[in-house]
Write a protein that binds this DNA or RNA. Structure first.
Length: 454
RNA sequence: GGUGGAAUGGCCGAGAGGCGAGGCAAGGGACUGCAAAUCCCUCUACACGGGUUCAAAUCCCGUUUCCACCUCCA
């Protein structure tokens, strides 16, 4: 068996394909002008789940994720997101890019996401894009307009819109935004491959069409074809990218290769936070660092995502993160008690759930039932959890990290032990409150007082 | 207007023709000096109207509501 995933293009589950036992994957990466929020991270986790499941089935994965550090325009179409942020922070745009790129990798690591093989940067792939744009012009799929920009000719690509279901003739120009007819494009659905510099002074490159900068969609085509040998087995991205980004990417890539360049399009649904879309204006943008700052294990967020289907919108809340945090803690402690084995046996039930369109919610439910099943031995329970954890990635075999206690807390603990020995309950309770507010969890049993970090 | 989804108990959410997931919250109990943690128990739902079927939350038709995308949002 191999993994089947729902394919947006054919609207049905489809088995993943591979060449020589290696599955090529491309995942649309971040635009590094700000921190990734937990919604972005959900999509990045999706590619990790796919890659881990593929590996569990015995195949290899070659994954590429781009870093967009130029060409992604702000909502008003006027300014590059990078330059806008550069203006705000008074830092060079490339420094901005490296800063947020670094933080992006840090977030991935905190979420226990296995790194891709390559993270090519748009700003370092300009030559690649030039080559592709030239090739598209030669094939008659793109044209240089009067405004010195190069546009893709949407009508040249038969089957434009098949991923999203949109049709060129029913796409209304400018429905969402006020449509500004600049006269340069031949058709309203055409998009820019290369934009002329105009007044722009930073982040511009020379090109056969004059100084300028690349459009957003061309980078993914250029990088995916270059670094994955002209064919992508699995393409991953957020649902919002289905149209127009992936539609345009497909048109570009297929025009170059003359074939269907992507086998399987996977889209992750969006995340709401406490019932609302995360947005700056709503003030409910949550970062992984916010989760960590509240004292939660970042992997609690991972568990929250795993408990929901990747294709469903989900509603995240602080309560669900807190609950996931406790669950992971309990599992780690139980697994430590059951004992770890150095050889993990295949659990075909779990594998079947995963290979059937990444049914991680079922895996979690199954694990909860294993946890409670008194007919299973400790070794069997431990094996089920550790097998699943190869994909779940919750570090379930890791003993709870023990932060060193400060001297002050040590003294308080000793003091409380004495108070308990003297049956001075009032003092003992008061000390417990102080210890708990410092983040400790105190438990008393016949064996005496013990503690752990919350 | 076009396109892609969704509607399940106080909340979050799996399930996709038959035997009522699970979690959180709440209430009760065990344990405890009292707690915390843990364990046990309780609480029972599928938007509306038709249809198909022995049987529908699940399939079909219609309605309503919600979300997303519509030309540079993960």
């Amino acid at each position: 068996m191999v993994l089947s995933i729902y394919d947006t293009f054919s609207r049905a589950p489809k088995e993943i394909s591979s060449g020589n036992g290696v599955v090529s994957m491309y995942c649309c990466g971040p635009t590094v002008y700000r921190d990734a929020h937990v919604g972005n991270l959900r999509t990045f986790l999706l590619s990790d789940l796919i890659a881990r499941t593929i590996r569990l089935s015995g195949l290899n994965v070659d994954m590429v994720q781009n870093i967009t550090d130029v060409g992604h325009m702000s909502d008003d179409f006027q300014e590059d997101k990078m330059l806008e942020q550069s203006e705000k922070e008074k830092i060079d745009p490339f420094e901005i890019a490296r800063k947020y790129e670094e933080r992006f990798h840090h977030d991935l690591s905190n979420l226990n996401i296995i790194p891709a093989q390559k993270y090519p940067r748009a700003s370092e792939s300009i030559e690649l894009m030039h080559e592709m744009i030239s090739a598209l012009i030669n094939k008659g799929a793109a044209y240089v307009a009067e405004d010195q920009c190069v546009y893709f000719d949407a009508q040249s690509f038969e089957g434009y819109g098949q991923i999203s279901g949109n049709r060129l003739d029913s796409l209304k120009p400018g429905h969402k935004y006020e449509f500004v007819e600049d006269g340069a494009k031949k058709f309203h659905a055409d998009w820019a491959l290369w934009k002329t510099a105009g007044n722009r002074k930073e982040m511009i490159w020379d090109s056969p069409w004059g100084p300028g900068f690349p459009g957003w969609h061309i980078e993914c085509s250029a990088m995916s074809l270059k670094f994955l040998d002209s064919h992508v087995n699995v393409h991953v991205g957020g649902i919002d990218l289905r149209f127009p980004h992936h539609e345009n990417e497909r048109a570009q890539s297929n025009s170059i290769t003359g074939t269907e360049s992507v086998d399987l399009w996977v889209h992750g649904e969006h995340l709401l936070f406490e019932g609302r879309k995360m947005s700056k204006s709503a003030g409910n943008v949550v970062l992984l660092n916010d989760v960590i700052a509240k004292g939660f294990d970042p992997l609690a967020l991972r568990l929250c995502f795993l408990e929901n289907r990747y294709r469903s919108q989900m509603d995240l809340s602080w309560q669900s993160i807190a609950s996931a945090h406790d669950t992971i803690k309990r599992w780690r402690s139980k697994i430590a008690g059951w004992g770890l084995s150095n050889s993990i046996k295949i659990d075909s039930t779990i594998l079947a759930f995963l290979e059937n369109d990444l049914e991680t919610p079922r895996v979690i439910t199954y694990l909860r039932s294993v946890e409670k099943d008194s007919n299973l031995t400790d070794a069997e329970k431990s094996n089920a959890f550790l097998f699943a954890d190869q994909v779940l990635g919750l570090h379930l075999s890791r003993p709870e990290k023990v932060k060193a206690l400060s001297e002050e807390l040590n003294l308080l603990l000793a003091e409380r032990e004495n108070a308990r020995a003297a049956k001075n309950w009032a003092l003992s309770d008061e000390l417990r409150i102080r210890l708990e507010s410092a983040g400790l969890e105190i438990s008393d049993s016949a064996a005496g007082q013990s503690w752990s970090w919350r």
